[in-house]
């Protein structure tokens, strides 16, 4: 039977994040943390694993590295139908950049057991790096196919369609391999009521560094080659103008502005 591992990340909901930014919280507002969601592309990763399972049979394992509350994300994955879930969590993992995250994930995957296919999202919407997939593949010593919008598995081989900016590439690779998926690959399902009830009863084991025993210089901030030294809000775009007048006048104004800015130079 195919053994699939799906890596998911819990990320803050963008909507929440901008609310925080736009109306800075005063001391009267006490937030119970931020609302979190499963990284949208990782829901596609879960869905794809479930579809393979339904077609071919597979053992689907979902893992997430993060703080204890990332269990909620794993709980949802269980409700969607994955077979088991592990949380990879330890205070010493905090501050990991993509290298250290990939290292911890690679070691956790090895610890959990043999695998044929790893599925990740194409990128996480918080960091937007799209690096963990390829880095994880490298650290596991397996080939990668990134930005996949379609895949098929037959006789231990995977055929996949990879999205590039101006064309698609159809590739074939022998398993084990890692794919990162785009949102075009499928429409993630909602958990069923039965799924939700089941998931509530399931145990989500936590792997800490006592289980993994990873050296300090490869995890957390110390294991991370990069450092965030400053975070700032980008300059808001200059306030725009609402163009007044009747239809004719508005059209005229826009044309003038386009001319002024030399934006009509490609005019057919």
């Amino acid at each position: 039977m195919l053994r699939i591992v799906v890596c998911i990340k819990q990320v803050p909901d963008t909507e929440e994040l901008t609310k925080v930014r736009i109306n800075p919280a005063t001391n009267t507002i006490v937030r119970e943390g931020v609302k979190s969601i499963i990284n949208p592309f990782d829901e596609n990763a879960i869905e794809e694993a479930l579809r393979i399972k339904e077609k071919k049979g597979a053992l689907v394992t979902c893992i997430s590295m993060g703080p204890p509350q990332a269990k909620e994300a794993l709980r949802k994955a269980l409700a969607m139908g994955v077979d088991r879930a592990f949380l990879i969590s330890d205070p010493s993992f905090a501050g990991s950049d993509t290298w250290a995250t990939s290292f911890v994930l690679s070691q956790a995957i090895r610890k959990i057991g043999e695998f044929d296919l790893i599925i990740t999202g194409k990128q996480a919407i918080d960091g937007d790096t799209a690096q963990v997939g390829p880095e994880l593949a490298e650290l596991l010593g397996i080939p990668q196919v990134t930005y996949v919008r379609k895949l098929e598995i037959e006789d231990g081989k995977m055929k996949a369609e990879r999205v590039l900016e101006d064309y698609f590439e159809v590739v074939q690779v022998k398993l084990p391999a890692l794919v990162t998926v785009t949102k075009e690959i499928n429409q993630p399902r909602y958990p069923s009521l039965k799924g939700l009830l089941n998931a509530r009863k399931m145990d989500i084991p936590v792997l800490t560094n006592e289980d993994l025993n990873l050296p300090e210089d490869k995890i957390g901030l110390d294991g991370s080659p990069t450092r965030v030294v400053r975070v700032f809000t980008p300059e808001p775009p200059p306030k725009g103008e609402i163009i007044e007048g009747d239809l004719e006048e508005k059209v005229q104004r826009i044309i003038e502005e386009l001319k002024k800015r030399n934006l009509l130079r490609w005019l057919k």
């Binding site: 993509t98 690096q131 990134t146």
Partner: peptide, 23 residues
């Protein structure tokens, strides 16, 4: 930071444990 560059750079960075900043 294209679908080729973002496929290649992390693969190399992971191999040599180099810091890589995306996009």
């Amino acid at each position: 930071a294209t679908s080729i560059g973002r496929d290649l750079a992390p693969r190399v960075a992971a191999r040599i444990k180099a810091g890589l900043t995306a996009d």
